Computed example of a mutant assay.
Amino acid sequence: MSITPPAHAPSEGASVEGATPLPHARLSDVWSRVRNVALPFGSLLLFLALWQLVAVSGAWSETLVPRPAKVWDTFIEISSTHDGVRGYNGTTLVEHLGISLRRIALGAGIGIAAGVVFGLLMGTVGWLRSLFEPWITFLRTLPPLAYFSLLIIWLGINEEPKITLLAVAAFPPVAVSTTAAVTAVPESLIEAARALGASRWAVVRDVVMPSALPETLTGIRLAVGVAYSSLVAAELVNGLPGIGGMVKDAANYNNTPVVVVGIIAIGISGLIIDGLLLRLERTAVPWRGRA
């Protein structure tokens, strides 16, 4: 008589397909999500508490360090029509921010497109890299204010110098990162594509560009950050309406609450856009960090 051996029970902690996750695994996942929300929120509360303590301590006048409640009231005032006054200088905060974002989108968009093209060319053609790389490094080391006055002399005080400054500021990070990514493409991949009969353009399109995409996207994120940091400089002259122009105009009259509101608006919008770019990077190159 044959006896069927008993099935081996799974060891403790082993996962079985279709089985319900262990309770401690679920708790760990929940705690991780709570922590990711609680830590930023807690740091914000701590910052507001320290800000309030500094403001009420009397170490500085309220003109220099306004209380958080005063900044909040100013945010409400310049975001709506208050006592017959619409926003700041006749424009609400959202409208100021929207105008500046359009300037950044146009200027940084031009700089990013030019940076990708130049990066691909310099990465694939050696003599072009030798020709243009010193000039790009020269631009990368210049602060925006160093050439903004020259742009005003050449282009006037309307939109052209602002867009040009943002484009020039966004161009070097993308060009440098794309060039470095293209030159780092394994030669074996290129030789394999050529051995299969791929043309020069096919090699660039099907091998070089996908390989360089992760670093190019990182360069784009850096370029948008540089454009944001150049925003106030771009709107120094004739920047109203615009969030940077609003900050500069309010600073001229020691209107610190408006300055703080403008800085917070720039920072929060920058965080949102960087988050969107990071999500785009994860979607476009899901293999990054896993290969």
Rank of each mutant, 00 (worst) to 15 (best):
E187Q: 14
W154D: 04
P134C: 04
M246K: 06
V116G: 02
I3H: 05
T137G: 09
S269H: 01
I76P: 00
L166M: 09
A181K: 11
L231Y: 07
L120R: 03
A49D: 02
G219A: 08
R35T: 12
W201D: 02
V116F: 14
T183A: 05
A170N: 09
G87C: 00
I78C: 13
I272E: 01
E12V: 08
H8D: 08
S57L: 06
A105G: 14
K162Q: 14
H24E: 15
G270N: 05
A284P: 03
T283A: 12
W201T: 11
V237S: 11
A223F: 05
S28F: 00
R194N: 10
R194G: 11
A113N: 07
F138V: 04
V224F: 13
L120C: 06
T183Y: 01
L145H: 04
E160L: 13
G111K: 11
V260N: 05
E159C: 09
F138D: 02
L139W: 07
N255H: 13
F75R: 09
H24W: 13
G225T: 11
L217A: 04
L45S: 05
R102D: 07
I266S: 02
L276N: 01
A25N: 00
N254C: 03
P23W: 07
S80V: 02
G239C: 09
R282D: 02
V237R: 08
A38P: 08
A193F: 04
V182S: 10
R129M: 00
N255C: 01
M246N: 09
V224T: 08
L236R: 11
I163Y: 12
V261N: 03
T4M: 08
W60T: 07
Y228I: 15
E133S: 12
M1A: 07
F47N: 00
P40N: 12
A181L: 03
P21A: 01
R67L: 06
G107F: 04
